[in-house]
């Protein structure tokens, strides 16, 4: 238990430090972009959130397969935690996108492929969470959730590559087109790292929390049974 505690604390410290560094990057270090001005800085939030939204569902997919194969509740808790976090990050990704779109393009939303597929991802997360919510018992929730986790993942590759697939006004593969200065790229990398560490940290904590809650409930049932 001691080792776990120090690991958790270390993780939290690393996450916080990275985050402070990222904030410094985003607010102070990176240069202001020429055409879009200060609002472009949302990009440094938006991109990591998008990446983690996709990673989240990939983890749900992976966990779902493992659960159906091994039938250990740990995998199910992992999947549902990943879905919870992935959903939150995807929601933030959409919100940050809108807040960037309004000053940059003048509209809160357009139906370009990139945004449309992002919205689809959001709905797929909702499908996963809905199934778990409406399941008639825990085991069924885990099993059905896994089904959604697997079939829903089929759409994820298309969501990921939709920017390169369809040309539109979305500032898509800027990173690869060399449209960013080195400072910007570096700032972006820091931000991605910070958010990723945060995500992983939350995921680990949430999964272990669910595991413990499950264990405590099981023990309680055992104890109450004997009375």
């Amino acid at each position: 238990m001691k080792g776990k505690e120090s690991f958790k604390t270390a993780g939290l410290v690393v996450a916080l430090l990275l985050f402070m560094w990222a904030l410094y990057m985003i607010f102070i270090f990176v240069p202001t972009e020429a055409t879009m001005g200060i609002s472009q800085r949302i990009f440094y939030f938006h991109v990591p959130l998008a990446w983690l939204g996709l990673l989240g569902y990939t983890l749900v997919f992976f966990g779902s397969i493992m659960y159906l194969w091994k039938r250990r509740s740990g995998w199910d808790n992992f999947s549902s935690s990943a879905a919870e976090l992935g959903f939150i990050f995807t929601t933030l990704f959409l919100i940050s996108g809108s807040l960037w779109a309004k000053p940059a393009w003048g509209v809160w939303w357009t139906w370009t492929p990139r945004l449309t597929t992002a919205l689809i991802l959001w709905f797929i997360y909702i499908a996963y969470l809905t199934v778990r919510f409406y399941a008639s018992e825990k085991q069924q929730g885990a099993r059905f959730g896994a089904v959604v986790g697997i079939v829903g993942f089929v759409d994820v590759p298309i969501i990921a590559i939709s920017t390169s697939l369809w040309r539109s006004e979305h500032p898509g593969a800027l990173v690869f087109q060399g449209g960013l200065t080195p400072e910007m790229t570096f700032g972006l990398m820091v931000s991605i790292a910070a958010f990723t560490v945060l995500f992983v940290y939350f995921l680990a904590i949430r999964t272990s929390l669910k595991q413990q809650e499950m264990e405590v409930e099981r023990l309680r049932e055992l104890v109450e049974q004997d009375q």
Partner: peptide, 17 residues
């Protein structure tokens, strides 16, 4: 069909996919 909300859940589940 096997969930608590039955058929109502169906569109939410499969339409996004």
């Amino acid at each position: 069909a096997n969930t608590k909300a039955r058929e109502m859940v169906l569109p939410i589940l499969f339409l996004p996919i």
